[in-house]
C-alpha cells in the first residue's frame, strides 16, 4: 500500500525510534522529537513501538491512502478530517481505500504523529528510517514534499482479519452511505502523556559546568522564565529572554553530547540539544533536560514560556523506569483491545 503526499504541510518527516550505534562516526540519533507520542500512535495500530511514522509540525499534510488503512494520530491536538468526516485522535481509525486525509492546524502542541498499521516501509539507513534533515541522512533525507509516495508495509495479519470483521459487523447503512472513517469507540486519555501547557516546569539535572555560571545566572537558570526562540528546530531549542553568563571563560575541547544537553554558547542564550543535534559539542554544559521531559519540551512552541526545575540523577531515572512500566502496561492493554470487536 502506498501513502501519497498531496501537500506536505509545514514540516512533515518520516521518524522512528532513531538511529543508534553510529554516534562514534558522527551519526546522530534523529528520530521522533516526542518519542512517547510516536510510541503510543504505533501501539494503537498494533505496530512495534519504534516503527516509522510521520512527524507533523504545526500544520499538517494532505495524504491519500490507496488502500484500506488502519491509522492512529497521537501528540499535538491537530485538526484531522476526511472530507466532512472528523478523524478522532488517540485511537485506532480505519480509513477506506481512496481516502484523503487532511491534517490542518494544531490547537495545542507542536508535533503530532500519524502511524499506519504495518509502518512506513522505506529502506532503513544505518538501522533507522528516520529523516535526519540536518545531516541529510536517511532513506528520505529531507522533509516530505508533494508527490512523495511512501510505501507502507502490510499490517499485521491478525489485525487485518479483525478489521475485516469490524467492517463486516458495521450496520448495512454505514457501508452504503460512503462513510470513509471508522473509529474505535475507545481512546487513550492523552492527559497522562501529552502536555503542551507552559506551566509544567521542564526538569533538568545541573550539568558539569553549572557551577561555572556566575551567581545571577545560577539563580536564573532554575528561577527565571525563558521563552522558546523562533529559530528552535529539530537540532536544538533556544531559551531566550534571560541571557546567562559564565563567571569566567572555560577552555574546552569537543566532547560527546546527548539529546537534552543544555549548552551555553558565548552569546548567552542556552540551547537544549534535540533529535538532530551533532554527536559532539564544545560549549559548556550547564544542565541536562531529563529524558522523560524531552517529549514535553518538544510540544512547546516558539514564544512559549519555559521554567526549569532542578532534579537529580536518581529521581530522573526512577521516573524514567516508572514511565516505561506504565507504557508497557498500556501497550498490553491496547494489544488486548485491538483484537476484540470495536
Amino acid at each position: 500500500m502506498n501513502l501519497r503526499v498531496l501537500a506536505p504541510g509545514l514540516l512533515t518527516s518520516v521518524q522512528d525510534g532513531g538511529r543508534r550505534g553510529h554516534a562514534a562516526i558522527g551519526v546522530g540519533r534523529a528520530g521522533a522529537m516526542d518519542d512517547v507520542s510516536l510510541r503510543l500512535a504505533n501501539m494503537l495500530v498494533g505496530n512495534a513501538q519504534d516503527v516509522a511514522a510521520l512527524e507533523i509540525t504545526l500544520r499538517g499534510p494532505r495524504l491519500r491512502f490507496e488502500a484500506d488503512a488502519l491509522i492512529a494520530i497521537a501528540g499535538a491536538e491537530i485538526d484531522a478530517r476526511c472530507g466532512d468526516e472528523i478523524v478522532p485522535l488517540w485511537r485506532p481509525v480505519l480509513l477506506r481505500a481512496g481516502s484523503e486525509l487532511s491534517l490542518g492546524g494544531m490547537r495545542h502542541g507542536t508535533r503530532a504523529y500519524l502511524a499506519v498499521a504495518g509502518g512506513i516501509a522505506l529502506p532503513a539507513v544505518l538501522g533507522s528510517r528516520s529523516s535526519d534533515i540536518n545531516a541529510a541522512l536517511g532513506p528520505l533525507p529531507r522533509a516530505l514534499a508533494a508527490g512523495d509516495e511512501l510505501p507502507c508495509a502490510a499490517a499485521p495479519r491478525v489485525l487485518c482479519g479483525d478489521l475485516r470483521e469490524a467492517l463486516g459487523a458495521l450496520p448495512f447503512e454505514a457501508r452504503t452511505e460512503n462513510r470513509r472513517v471508522f473509529a474505535a469507540k475507545w481512546s487513550l486519555d492523552p492527559s497522562s502523556w501529552f502536555d503542551a501547557g507552559a506551566t509544567r516546569p521542564i526538569r533538568a539535572i545541573a550539568g558539569t559546568h553549572f557551577d561555572r555560571l556566575d551567581a545571577d545566572s545560577r539563580r536564573a537558570l532554575f528561577g527565571a522564565e525563558f521563552r522558546i526562540g523562533v529559530d528552535s528546530n529539530r537540532v536544538g531549542c533556544r531559551f531566550e529572554r534571560v541571557p546567562l553568563k559564565l563567571a569566567a571563560p572555560i577552555e574546552m575541547v569537543s566532547a560527546g553530547t546527548a539529546p537534552g544537553t543544555l549548552q551555553l554558547p558565548p552569546g548567552g542564550v542556552p540551547i537544549a540539544l534535540t533529535a538532530e543535534a551533532p554527536t559532539t559539542g564544545g560549549y559548556p554544559r550547564i544542565a541536562q533536560v531529563i529524558a522523560i521531559d524531552l517529549p514535553h519540551l518538544a510540544q512547546r512552541r516558539p514564544g512559549d514560556a519555559v521554567r526549569f526545575a532542578p532534579t537529580d540523577l536518581a529521581a530522573a531515572q526512577m521516573r524514567y523506569l516508572e514511565r516505561e512500566r506504565a507504557l508497557a502496561k498500556l501497550a498490553s492493554w491496547i494489544q488486548a483491545r485491538l483484537h476484540r470487536p470495536w
Partner: peptide, 18 residues
C-alpha cells in the same frame, strides 16, 4: 549501552537505564 563516542579527552557512553 547503545553508543560509545570517543572525543579528544573523553568517552561518552549512551545507555538505557532499564
Amino acid at each position: 549501552v547503545v553508543d560509545i563516542v570517543p572525543a579528544y579527552a573523553s568517552v561518552a557512553v549512551h545507555y538505557d537505564p532499564r
